[in-house]
Design a protein around this nucleic acid. Sequence first.
DNA 1: TCTCCCCGGTTTGGATACAAAATCACTCGA
DNA 2: TCGAGTGATTTTGTATCCAAACCGGGGAGA
Lengths: 235, 235
Amino acid sequence: MIKNMYKSSKRSFPVYDSLRQAIIEQALKPGVKLPEDSIGETFGVSRTIVRNALVRLDAEGLVDIQPNRGASVAEPTIEEAYDIFEMRQCLEREVMQRLCRMDPKPIVKALKAHLAEERSALGKDSTRSIRLAGEFHILLAELTGSQILANYVNEIVSRCSLILARFAQAHSAECGVEEHAEIISAIAEGDAEKAIGQMHSHLHGVQDRALLNPDDDRAENVAEILSRYRTNETD
Amino acid sequence: MIKNMYKSSKRSFPVYDSLRQAIIEQALKPGVKLPEDSIGETFGVSRTIVRNALVRLDAEGLVDIQPNRGASVAEPTIEEAYDIFEMRQCLEREVMQRLCRMDPKPIVKALKAHLAEERSALGKDSTRSIRLAGEFHILLAELTGSQILANYVNEIVSRCSLILARFAQAHSAECGVEEHAEIISAIAEGDAEKAIGQMHSHLHGVQDRALLNPDDDRAENVAEILSRYRTNETD
DNA sequence: TCTCCCCGGTTTGGATACAAAATCACTCGA
DNA sequence: TCGAGTGATTTTGTATCCAAACCGGGGAGA
């Protein structure tokens, strides 16, 4: 649970963490500018602090800093989105493989506790629900005991949230809680094949819901967008 | 080839890069203090710049920043070392899997060009030789076309260099150039199984050379170290 | 002699100041 | 009406400054 995080500065951590939460909860949408002054004001700290937080987030791929032009929430392209999801498949497959080599007892116990939380938040608090769904995957990674694997999964789950914010409409892409339950069962049974397969299709489902309809992709050509609205004059 | 790197500041990049090189080439050994003042002086920049570079390196796990106590080159524990190598196995297995699904022609060509460089530097320039050996693995990752996979491999190869600096004696842990050659052959033949296996044992070899003899592990007890130097009085 | 405490020097944490770059708004001209 | 040019305003990049934390040494007391 204790992460490798941010020993560098007591005061910049809250800024970092708030921004991070806001981005992955989609309160700050991709492309939004993040001026150092105003952020500093809202937190009552100087730009120095904010700057550190932004540099960190840039390193994690959640914000994009451009020279002399400041920071804004990252806007992953559709290609990057596929790339990130593919990497996520790789990392989470590793997680499942490692977990299935371990004693399932304590693992399943921890997972079930988390699942209960997920279920209790299900219809009530959408934001909390989304956050818990992400944290399920992070918990899995942490249970492997590998610090570095947990860090990578943590990072990539965040970036996937960002992708959802960019490409998925509404919250169609919420993690299925019952899929999580099935994954837990597979681990409990000690069936590595099944667990890995289930995780794979779970992630594939999330990806599909996120990326199947890239209508609102701002990266596509203006002409192309307009062509959809043009009445067919020559016909 | 174009990395996700450091758009944040024109001037802090050279500092970042020099420190990084110095650390992975083992010129700056684990545990060495990195005071902001003196570094700033040598580069002719202010502490502000240096600080940014150090924060970045901290995020990458190459330096360790402790509150009010400044930065020093990271000292991975033996447990972290095993953790990192295991992660590296996972990432590079993924690299091989992806490469073997692609057209081998251009890949093999690029790799052979690199191999030629490695061979030419072999007995001559030890530092260059080590650097090229690391870059071979990074090149492999880049050839997959996955930005994020390449970034992760890049980061983890750096951290492995740091581990070598910490635990391996002398340069016994140099990558075997001929093992690289065999990996290229396996890719050229399109034999995924073989390529993956060869990569696995190659990395395992590096790890063994690095970690088999953790004599000089500073983490061990002072008493234990001294006991080796104590003449056996009671006998 | 050993230990503890105090003090000066050094280093970091963070805010601020100032210059350079970019952005915005407005005017002028076609 | 539209677009280019220009000055004002905002925002970033970096150096510097001050306060607080840490480190090392020397002296007082046991």
